[in-house]
Design a binder for these strands. Structure first.
Length: 932
DNA sequence: CCTGTCACG
DNA sequence: GACGTACGTGACAGGG
């Protein structure tokens, strides 16, 4: 069909699709050969979704996907810096580029690119041709450069946001209509494409100037008349640069094409072509979906067994467990040490008798210097267990170096500032070595490299990373140790097996390091890794080793009291129920409440059991006494089992202190997580619970000091979202929730009631969490309509908040991640999902930059803290997200507070100058309850 | 091993 | 138009 009046042309910006697909999906690889395929998969999905969405009455008659071709265009001849600051294409995306073309053709959609021209120029040329022929055009892209084409039958469609952009939309974005967009762009420049523009003039100012003077040329000719001296000078002095910028942003509407509009007619996909392509890519789900849609049978997808030697990215070297060396003597070890010095780096891994670094004993050390070249140094292996004779059982295995000898030889290497020690989760090994008197440094950590690059995409344990990035499943530790009751410790593992396992770990670590090192740069997270992740390792190691003194007597006394009270309550509850049952069983409790007692409103969860959460029981408490007693019982049960009992088990017998372990790469937002035990959730909100903190004490002659950031997340929100009213309130030191309430409800601050303030507080928190009327309604126990009215009012009073939320969601959808002020990336792979998961992902995306920036700030404070308090008799013990806890000798409290507060309040600087002050509150006491 | 519950920021 | 919703964690008990 010839293109003409009544025709509708769709032009799809192919590169935008590809990059969106690439960033939206984890680095998927084709199962059979490891070919990176994530972007192709995403691309095909997007094309398919596009096709499905365009079957209606407004279906296009003509369509093409347009790509960029080559990196050199006429714009580079005009200006050699054009797009010069663009990152190189990620290594794993490059091989996917030709496949996206193939995919387009497989869908039977015209696929066009022309050497030396950008896709935008081809799109411009086709749009004008279509307009001239009397047809309509829809450009599927969100690239603002294309906005100059809009109007007179040409519209843009942002496929992700599903938003059409017409002339008014362009006006909204640029402040001018499409025909003047290039003028505004020429002035404002574009940092992404490295278009210089006029320094100091952004889109707002540019639009204002153009609207005042009509066109860019008229503006430049009348530059002398401009009142603002700075602006006038810029426009006069930078005229050439501005005119060059205009030529750079101006799309070429006369690109020579080797095809015509008629060639772009919409065609049905041919199942004989499309399905084999999808099957070859090994897209199971998509192949089936499309086959169903086309009404044909889905082809069988044959996935050959992975052939590691054919893996393209890792054409390296297969893993050979038999190639590893067992080092049994100083003579064996010497050449390894020489090789390490020759290279300047070595991957190191320790094997121990357990997972708790404070109690586990060193069993052996493995080293790797090149992929495939690794050794294991057994140091404390014993004969395999269960010997009849208790004495021979503990005899060391023959042929091991004395531990002291090995450590004496390794210590200089491990502490050599010229030798980089590479590990996976180095904090563990650093602590093991520290207990042997070795301060390992400098270090790299593959777990943290992965975390900096891939937070939110997947876990960062070695097994996951090896599988994903090396296509190799490591020997499972369970195969050596067994599990459950018969589990043995690593010192009982036979040497030949131990060598294979341990050396492989070091080998994997080295290979991951070689792969990740360049990728840190392409992912632009080198600074995050080097400034926020890696330096934290020694800091946390020292905090964990310091531990905090916990008074067993106090806990034990509380346990006894709790047990007594619980027994009492249990009796009462059984009496009220009319029979005995396990109060701790939600299942049994639900049956009692809703089946036997016949209370109304029982809701079943997905397992079919009644929900009996605190919110449910609180509602029921108005109807009957039993649920109220159960709530009391549950509180005590929680306190006893999780705190007063369990904490006693964690008191280290040697130090008399409790040593938590922080996971650096656990939470996707950059927060730390505390485990074994978790010291970040010690009770404080209720009086009974709070008393548990009395058991966390300072040594005699010392004090505990707690410093915590006041409202740090709301302050960050005020800064990021640029909310002037919030900023002002913080600058004036106002009660922020009261100030919010006052602004929203018009109540003067001195007439504020606690209830109004409470509601405003809930809204403030809600905003940080990605507010919804439902969530707020549930939190405040008010009707949803009322909650919605609150939120509407809030957005009305603080319109910047909604802009922030929309912008953050949009960014996540486009890039597949969000970022903190310090550049930490948090990936949001589900952001383009459908159904309830989309909501989750969106709220998480809104929250992540705020929570993550707060996490970055306290990390910066912790990293600087040791230096700042070096001369004080004080130790940093714990971090609880926005709080740091110190132990300090009596008499030095004030000095510590002053020094630590300064570090914390200035922690964002100099990278970020926040528009709001950071404020730190401090408390001192003999125990944690008093210090808070 | 999963689910529900509840402790924290 | 229906659906299901506050963000981030870890530990414990029950129950299959």
């Amino acid at each position: 069909m010839a293109f003409g009046k009544g025709c509708h042309l769709h032009l799809i910006d192919g590169s935008a699709f590809i990059f969106r697909a690439y960033h939206a999906l984890p680095p998927l690889t084709r199962k059979s050969d490891g070919l990176p395929i994530g972007a192709v998969a995403g691309f095909c999905n997007m094309i398919f979704r596009y096709v499905e969405a365009n079957e209606g009455p407004d279906a296009p008659t003509h369509v093409a996907v347009i790509f960029d071709k080559g990196s050199h265009t006429f714009r580079n001849d005009l200006y050699d810096q054009y797009k010069a600051n663009r990152d190189a294409m990620p290594e794993d995306l490059r091989p996917q580029m030709p496949l996206t073309r193939e995919a387009t053709r497989a869908f039977n959609i015209a696929c066009k690119e022309i050497e030396g021209y950008e896709a935008d120029d081809i799109i411009a040329t086709l749009s004008r041709q279509a307009q001239a022929a009397g047809g309509r055009v829809t450009i599927i892209s969100s690239d603002k450069d294309l906005m100059q084409l809009v109007g007179d039958g040409v519209e843009m469609l942002d496929a992700m946001k599903n938003r059409r952009i017409d002339r008014e939309g362009v006006l909204e974005k640029f402040g001018v209509y499409p025909e003047r967009v290039v003028d505004v762009q020429a002035l404002a420049g574009d940092s992404v494409d490295n278009v210089p523009g006029a320094p100091g003039i952004g889109i707002k100012t540019a639009a204002q100037l153009i609207n005042e003077y009509g066109t860019l040329e008229e503006l430049l000719d009348s530059a002398e008349q401009i009142k603002q001296p700075k602006r006038r000078q810029t426009l006069i002095e930078k005229r050439e640069q501005i005119e060059l910028s205009k030529r750079l942003v101006q799309l070429d509407e006369a690109t020579p094409l080797d095809f015509t509009l008629d060639d772009l007619e919409v065609l049905e996909p041919d199942p004989e072509v499309l399905l084999p392509f999808l099957a070859e890519m090994e897209f199971r789900t998509l192949t089936k979906r499309i086959a169903d849609k086309l009404g044909v049978e889905s082809p069988e997808i044959q996935i050959a067994a992975p052939a590691p030697e054919e893996g393209p990215s890792l054409a390296d070297l297969p893993f050979d467990p038999d190639s590893y060396t067992c080092v049994r003597s100083a003579e064996d070890l010497a050449p390894w040490i020489a090789q390490i010095h020759a290279r300047g780096w070595v991957a190191v891994d320790t094997e121990t008798t357990g997972l708790n670094e404070m109690t586990a004993d060193l069993v052996g050390i493995s080293l790797c210097i090149e992929p495939g070249e690794a050794c294991y140094i057994p140091l404390a292996h014993k004969a395999p267990g269960a010997a009849d004779d208790l004495f021979t059982e503990d005899a060391p295995v023959e042929g091991q170096m004395p531990m002291a000898d090995a450590l004496a030889l390794l210590k200089p290497v491990l502490e050599d500032p010229a030798v980089l020690k590479i590990g996976q989760n180095m904090k563990y090994d650093a602590k093991i070595f520290a207990r042997q008197g070795i301060e390992i440094a400098p270090i790299d950590d593959t777990m943290l490299m992965s975390y900096a690059m891939h937070a939110g995409l997947h876990g960062h344990g070695m097994d996951a990373l090896s599988d994903k990035y090396l296509g190799h499943t490591p020997i499972p530790i369970k195969s050596l140790l067994g599990s459950g009751k018969s589990q043995i410790t690593f010192d009982r593992v036979p040497l030949d097996e131990a060598v294979k396992y341990a050396a492989e770990d070091a080998d994997i670590t080295l290979r991951l390091w070689q792969m990740f090192r360049p990728r840190l740069h392409t992912a632009q997270v080198t600074r995050v890794y080097e400034r926020l992740e890696r330096p934290l390792v020694p800091v946390l190691a020292r905090m964990e080793m310091a531990g905090i003194k916990v008074d067993r007597e106090t806990l034990s006394r509380m346990s006894g009291a709790f047990a007594q009270k619980m027994a009492q309550l249990e009796e009462e509850i059984h009496g009220l129920a009319g029979r005995t049952f396990n109060v701790g069983s939600p299942k049994q409790l639900g049956e009692i409440l809703f089946d036997e007692m016949g209370l109304e409103g029982g809701k079943r969860g997905k397992t079919g059991a009644y929900a009996t959460g605190a919110d449910v029981l609180e509602d029921l408490a108005t109807l009957h006494e039993l649920p109220a007693r159960v709530l009391d019982w549950r509180q005590l049960s929680k306190l006893k089992s999780t705190y007063t009992d369990a904490l006693q088990e964690h008191i280290n017998s040697e130090t008399g202190r409790v040593h938590t372990s922080y996971s650096i790469a656990g939470a996707s937002t950059g927060r730390l997580a505390s485990t074994d035990p978790n010291l970040q959730n010690i009770p404080i909100r209720t009086e009974e619970g709070r008393r548990i903190r009395e058991a966390f004490v300072a040594e005699p002659g010392k004090q505990l000091i707690a410093l915590d950031y006041s409202q740090i997340e709301l302050r960050i929100l005020a800064h990021i979202a640029q909310i002037d009213a919030l900023k002002e309130a913080f600058r004036e030191g106002q009660d922020i929730h009261a100030a919010t309430a006052s602004e929203m409800f018009g109540v003067p601050l001195d007439e504020m009631t606690p209830d109004v303030r409470r509601q405003a507080k809930a809204i403030n928190f809600g905003v940080i969490y990605g507010i919804s009327a439902f969530g707020l309604a549930r939190n405040l126990r008010i009707p949803r309509e009322e909650a919605k009215a609150f939120i509407d009012r809030y957005f009305e009073r603080f319109p910047g908040i909604r802009d922030y939320m929309d912008a953050t969601k949009g960014f996540a959808k486009e890039h597949g991640h969000v970022a903190t002020l310090f550049g930490r990336k948090i990936h949001t792979p589900e952001i383009n999902a459908r159904g309830p998961r989309a909501g989750f992902a969106q709220r998480a995306a809104i929250n992540a930059p705020i929570q993550g920036t707060a996490a970055d700030i306290i990390r910066r404070a912790m990293i600087r803290m040791e230096d700042a308090i070096r001369d004080l008799p004080a130790t940093m013990l714990l971090q609880v997200h926005d709080e740091l806890l110190f132990e300090v000798e009596e008499g030095a409290e004030d000095a510590l507070i002053a020094a630590a507060r300064r570090v914390m309040e200035e922690a964002a600087e100099p990278v970020i100058k926040l528009d709001v002050p950071l404020v730190v509150d401090a408390g001192t006491g003999a125990n944690w309850a008093e210090a808070h």
